[in-house]
Design a protein around this nucleic acid. Structure first.
Length: 229
DNA sequence: GACCAGGCACATC
DNA sequence: GATGTGCATGGT
């Protein structure tokens, strides 16, 4: 299969041509990336930025800071990101994993092999597949393709996967369609979010979308895992 | 005022 | 295993 036959890679090229590099994740440290990954669950990024600003201003965006703060205060600081009571619990749950299994050190967590780390992240209350993969990819540079609502929406609207495809089905499809590269996974997901925000809301605005020419006629079959024609 | 946003856990069938 | 519901702020 050549690159020219691969619909998914051509989508990537089109998005990259249109938007250029996205420089993800928008966070300065691994801990900030992880915090953002939890806070952005079902939440507009702008609200997450406010919450992270609050944590920074309070000098609490550190392992010790997060570990040593009461749930109530944490919740108050992250209030702008919504679901703040739940997310305060989730942040603490992650910090507990970090403390209990890795002595509170992200560098030590980073020594864990990807499959084991993914399992441990998924076992944390409040970390599901997307958040786990976001952490693996954007905080630790692992090859974990992140699937979000936009990914499934875009692929299903282009008849590449069924609309009700599961997280892992979509992930398998993407990973099977493009080279295994953390840099590519990083950029691709960021570009999907970029385009998704603009054109792929619940009410699609496909007319000016850079991907508007990629629609397919046939219904998708997930079993092949390959996106060529 | 309704709808939406870079999910997840939990209850119920 | 599928489906429904609660969680909550801020922008459009």
């Amino acid at each position: 299969m050549t690159k020219g036959d691969n619909v998914v890679l051509r989508m990537y090229d089109e998005l990259f041509r249109t938007y250029g590099p996205q420089h993800w994740w928008p966070g300065e440290t691994p801990l900030e990336v992880i915090t953002g990954a939890i806070l952005t669950q079902n939440t507009a990024w702008g609200n997450v930025e406010r919450a992270i600003r609050n944590l920074k201003r309070a000098r609490l965006l550190s392992v010790k800071g997060l570990a040593g703060t009461s749930q109530r205060r944490l919740a108050r600081l992250i209030r702008p990101s919504g679901y703040f009571n739940q997310k305060a619990v989730k942040l603490r749950a992650f910090i507990n994993l970090l403390r209990d299994e890795y002595g509170g050190r992200l560098r030590r967590m980073d020594r864990e092999r990807t499959p084991a780390l993914r399992r441990k992240l998924l076992a944390v209350h409040g970390i599901g597949p997307e958040t786990a993969d976001s952490i693996l990819l954007y905080a630790f540079g692992r090859r974990a393709f992140v699937v979000d609502t936009y990914t499934t929406r875009i692929l299903s609207r282009h008849n590449l996967v069924p609309a009700d495809a599961s997280y892992h089905e979509v992930q398998r499809f993407m990973a099977g369609s493009i080279p295994r590269s953390a840099r590519l996974y990083n950029e691709f997901h960021a570009l999907i979010v970029r385009a998704g925000k603009e054109f792929c809301g619940k009410i699609p605005r496909c007319v000016e979308c850079p991907l508007r020419h990629f629609s397919r006629q046939a219904k998708p079959k997930l079993s092949t895992g390959v996106a060529d024609t």
